[in-house]
Design a protein around this nucleic acid. Structure first.
Length: 822
RNA sequence: GCCCGGAUGGCGGAAUGGCAGACGCAGGGGACUCAAAAUCCCCCGGCCGCAAGGUCGUGUGGGUUCAAGUCCCACUCCGGGCACCA
């Protein structure tokens, strides 16, 4: 579209000036009030897409707005530069992942700069920088020292064809390998874990105090999944040395237990299985252990029948409540990873137990009286205890307490809290990640690499081949080393860390990448932390945000971050996704709309304004055929403002009059509306308010009646100031044209509204009869209730409608409304 | 299955319990122009009406209230998250 100015030249000129001015480079000793604004650092996948544009438009708005409010705003940028896509690209091309990564970082950096977003680039973080690797490894070692990092066996997806480990994303829905098509197996490997469960309670409790979207808080709570109950022993009949420990949230249902179930992975399963039952049990275990993880986690009413999903072990246990002999089954609906991997089954009060009991003809004993009209199978609602010996007549909550106490005396039981949250498996059998700084020595065992030898970096002389196996595992120069303790021959750990470890502390590195020898100086970090406003996609609602919270707490506890707050992100805003044709816009789906074409037509300002205007920032947005028209409309608004500021068709009047007062009121009301919008994520209504003001100004200044110069100047200056965080280039240019080339609109103070200009002298009062609007009346803004009522009743059209009848009631809400009830 | 969201013109959306549809897009009409583009002006939920005006209208059905898009109850549909968590 034809523009009244050269948009490309104008925008690149200002981007250059912002870089030169240093306006957004803040030092750690800046005396102003602090504000830490942060967008989630991106994975560098090449030039920015609309999701980035949306994210950084919101972020940049916050940065520029808070700066104009007089704050020192920390606005850093960086790249989450380790990860699988670069590794896969390198495998395909037979080259090194760094080549792709560095190139894509430059592409993304350039396109982000073209958006006009401003950052303090001195603080840039790239996860694959040796400096960053060094401190990521130092943190690992501190966690190891503190007992927060440990080794254990854990299953991985193993492709026999490729002889390598696969990420979950590389396993197809039917359980085959993405690359070779072979059936993927579960295989146990010794791997590293972070003990996030040690913080389960704190992670759960501190969710409450965060200014985060409720949706995200709920997701975090559910993910942590705390449940209270009891754990106790079920003695195996005839084997005095053998007992199965079970966990239940319903100890009150103890008299209703009619069987017990262990998970296929249960360590005692072998001992429990009798010779006669061996075949059935083995068959079940084999199937559960196979590639059928997906099958197993599918809902119970799909896939394989329940009869095939459980088998009798041949053993019995004794119910401690009533001495009954209970058959022990193995079934895949019990998970080895949760609780004790074994349960007491209560078909009358648990739906899964009920379904299983039906198929296997197991008895049912109700221990809670269901309501009279209850027709279902399992009843898990409230009620009075029945068939439960000493618990009869009690409420469920009281029965839980007494049953737990009973178990304590009779079955080595105790109250127990369980979490759904598992420890964080951080080992990745990948090349393009941060190496785990550990060596294995035959004599000394697991030996941490001494801090002064960090970073441990991957060698450059590798090429990724089609096998997909990490070259770290086979590169002798990397793997063979000497033991730091005894000096003997040793092997380096070949695994790298999950890339979520990098994104768990980058926001701390931003605060102080300057002090040598430490990841960050705690006193410098303390000046900025916690992040005042974190902005990112909802897709990170659980993992990234949970891991970063864990890191923050652990870093404080291991002594790397003394004095820092234990929660990293005070306020979180999650932006909506951009969808196209029903699915999320993404590179992998191939439905990207590149921003570049818009930089050349409507400019970054036009595109930014569109993202701000199109709807509430936290809502998803559908990119359709109509979208380009809306973007053009946003550029049209900029052009109209430009032409008005350039005085096109404006006529002047010497003296100010009532029309000027009205315009000034509109200007000051707009200040309030835009400011409110900025504070409450109402950017769309903020843009609308500016559009309305422009309509008002244009009509007024171009009318034959004319505009008073001072009023006009105040209005245009205010528009520039209010627009500065949204459309920074054009507002900067207009400001410079009006005030001199050395004047920066973004260095000005945010405008404040004159309270006397925000309220009107007179307002339109609505007169209703029975809630329906029948008349309107111009009244003084401070009209009294009595005067409003009198004026309403005196209005001729109202009097005519009432026809002399006295109203039964009159509700007056001066000065806006009077409702007459006949 | 459970837990969150959401449903308003042709479309995106606006509306501290107080004039539903701000603002924009699309559409229609007009001005300017030889013409087109751009720009500017006007109209734009349905129905009745020449008009003034009337009447219905915020997914469905109830309710609370002088007054409900907004609050409460029940439901329908759509989107998302978790999904055998004992």
């Amino acid at each position: 579209m034809a523009r009244p100015f050269d948009v490309v030249a104008l925008e690149s000129k200002w981007q250059q000036r912002w870089r030169d001015s240093g306006l957004y480079e803040v030092d750690n000793d800046d005396p102003r009030e602090r504000f830490y604004a942060l967008c989630m650092y991106p994975y560098p996948s090449g030039a920015a897409h609309q999701g980035h544009v949306r994210n950084y438009t919101f972020g940049d708005l916050v940065v520029r707005y808070q700066t104009m409010r007089g704050k020192a705003v920390l606005s850093p940028f960086g790249f989450d530069s380790f990860g699988l896509p670069a590794e896969n690209a390198a495998i395909k091309a037979g080259s090194h992942p760094r080549l792709f990564t560095d190139q894509r970082i430059e592409e993304l950096r350039a396109s982000v700069q073209k958006l006009g977003a401003v950052y303090d680039w001195r603080r840039e973080v790239r996860s694959h920088d040796p400096e960053y690797i060094k401190y990521s490894q130092l943190i690992f070692l501190k966690f190891f020292e503190a007992g927060l990092a440990y080794r254990a066996n854990a299953p991985v997806n193993w492709c026999p064809g490729c002889a390598t480990v696969l990420a979950n994303e590389q396993v197809n829905a039917d359980g085959t390998c993405d690359r070779s098509g072979d059936l993927v197996e579960r295989k146990n490997l010794e791997q590293w874990f972070f003990k996030i469960t040690a913080y389960a309670d704190e992670l759960l409790n501190e969710v409450d105090g965060l200014e985060w979207p409720d949706r995200v808080k709920t997701m975090q709570r559910n993910w942590i999944g705390r449940s209270e109950g009891a754990e106790f022993a079920l003695q195996v009949d005839g084997q005095p040395d053998l007992a199965i420990r079970v966990f239940t949230t319903r100890p009150d249902t103890g008299f209703g237990v009619t069987y017990a179930v262990v998970a296929p992975e249960h360590p005692l399963l072998d001992q429990l299985t009798t010779a006669e039952q061996r075949d059935g049990v083995d068959e079940l275990v084999t199937r559960a252990r196979g590639a059928s993880e997906l099958e197993r986690t599918a809902s119970s009413d799909s896939g394989i029948g329940l009869d095939k999903r459980g088998a009798f072990t041949g053993s019995y246990v004794i119910n401690p409540f009533n001495g009954d002999k209970l058959p022990v089954y193995v079934a895949d609906y019990v998970l080895g990873t949760y609780g004790t991997g074994a349960i007491m089954a209560v078909p009358a009060e648990d739906e899964r137990d009920y379904a299983f009991a039906q198929v296997h003809n197991l008895p049912l004993v109700r221990t809670v009286a269901p309501p009279a009209d209850f027709e279902g199978g399992a009843y898990s609602g409230d009620g009075v205890k029945i068939n439960s010996g000493f618990l009869d007549g009690l409420s469920i909550s009281e029965a839980k307490k007494q049953a737990t106490a009973f178990l304590g005396e009779r079955a080595a039981g105790e109250a127990k809290v369980n979490f759904r949250l598992r420890d964080w498996l951080v080992s990745r059998q990948r090349f393009w990640g941060c190496p785990i700084p550990i060596v294995y020595c035959d004599g000394c065992g697991i030996v941490p690499v001494p801090a002064e030898q960090l970073p441990v970096v991957a060698p450059d002389d590798v090429s990724m081949d089609k096998s997909g196996q990490s070259p770290l595992a086979t590169h002798e120069g990397f793997r063979s080393t000497t033991c730091p303790t005894c000096g003997g021959a040793a092997r380096r750990e070949a695994d790298t860390m999950d890339t979520f470890t990098d994104s768990s502390w980058y926001f701390l590195r931003y605060t102080d990448p300057f002090t040598p020898g430490v990841p960050f100086d705690p006193s410098a970090a303390a000046k900025w932390m916690p992040v005042d406003q974190y902005i990112g996609g909802i897709e990170h609602a659980i993992l990234h945000l949970l891991y970063a919270r864990f890191y923050m707490k652990a870093l404080v506890d291991v002594g790397l971050a003394p004095g820092l707050p234990r929660e990293p992100f005070r306020r979180l805003f999650t932006q909506g996704m951009i969808r196209m044709g029903g699915s999320k816009m993404s590179k992998s789906k191939g439905n990207l709309v590149a921003p570049q074409q818009y930089y050349e037509s409507v400019g970054a300002d036009g595109l930014r304004l569109f993202h701000l205007f199109v709807g509430p920032p936290n809502d998803d947005f559908d990119w359709t055929e109509q979208t380009n028209d809306v973007i053009d409309g946003c550029a049209r608004f900029i052009d109209r403002l430009w032409r008005l500021a350039e005085l096109e068709e404006v006529t002047w009047r010497d003296e100010a009059d009532a029309t000027d007062l009205a315009v000034r009121r509109a200007v000051h009301k707009t200040i309030v509306r835009v400011t409110d919008g900025f504070e409450k994520w109402g950017y769309n209504t903020g843009v609308a308010a500016l559009m309305e003001l422009l309509n008002t100004l244009s009509k007024w200044a171009r009318d034959a009646h004319g505009a008073h110069r001072a009023t006009f100047d105040e209005a245009i200056d205010t528009m520039c100031l209010l627009l500065a965080p949204m459309a920074p280039h054009v507002s900067a240019e207009l400001w410079a044209k009006r005030h001199g080339d050395d004047q920066l609109v973004h260095a000005q103070s945010w405008p404040t509204a004159d309270p006397s200009l925000v309220v009107d002298d007179t307002v339109t009062m609505v007169i209703q009869i029975a809630g329906k609007v029948k008349a309107r009346l111009e009244v003084a803004a401070d009209i009294s209730e009595a005067d409003a009522t009198a004026a309403a009743l005196a209005e001729p059209s109202i009097a005519a409608l009432l026809n002399g009848a006295a109203p039964s009631r009159v509700i007056a809400r001066p000065p806006k409304l009077v409702n007459i009830v006949p």
